[in-house]
Amino acid sequence: MNAMIDISKLNAWFDDNHVLKDVDISVPANGSFGLVGESGSGKSTVLRTVTGLVDDWEGNILVNNKELTGTRDKAFYRLAQMVFQDPFGSLHPRHTIDRILTEPVNIHGLGNSDARVVEALNQVGLDNSFRFRYPHQLSGGQRQRVAIARALILEPKILLLDEPTSALDVSIQAEVLNLLTRLRHDLGLTYIMVSHDLAVVAHMCDDIAIMNHGRIVERATATQLAEGKLDHPYSQQLYKAAAGYDRAVVDSFVDWD
């Protein structure tokens, strides 16, 4: 098996709430997998389970051919990092960018933190003048770049991206998506990208899964998605909604709860 990430029969619970139901995902090295669905469908939970932020789960998660158990060690965090949805919530409001980026370098004893911070900032297209600012002195797009820099500074092989652009303006989204595409090619990264926006995932990913209520209801390749070749009525509805407002189409919507 040479998948970088191989998740099978993943189930997760929050108390009695069965949030993930038999989720299977496999991503080859340097691949990019997209997970789409409406809010509450369990997309973030998939990523959070992989990174060890969810306690109650069952199933098999293989990362780089190593089976994950209950706790993650430091080595895992050097292999896989996550970028959160809300760039306003994922950076500590009382820490400067410098501190945010230096801390992981020190914890993992990588040394040479000065040069690493500068390099990480350069990688995401920020110059040195940002280094000593506080998050509130940055725009949303700049904050998300910092969050990506923080994820990259440990030189991981895997980035788990939780709606990395949904809080950003479309013009900034384009820049961040281009940055992510470039980084994947340059650094040979493997992505799982979560989004509620079908177009973003279609643009970024090779394989796509559509989730509804904790279950993957449909899988497609980017090409199939581009042609609108979707079978499940839920995915078709998402596809139609992505085209913008059309009074007649809205009347055909059904609720999926």
Partner: peptide, 26 residues
């Protein structure tokens, strides 16, 4: 429960580090 604490956890910050460096300042 905030994202920045989770993010710090994923950087390998220990519980002690989280309390002293991330929670106390707040």
């Amino acid at each position: 429960k905030s994202d920045y604490i989770d993010a710090a956890r994923l950087q390998g910050v220990s519980n002690r580090g989280l309390i002293i460096g991330h929670i106390m300042p707040m």
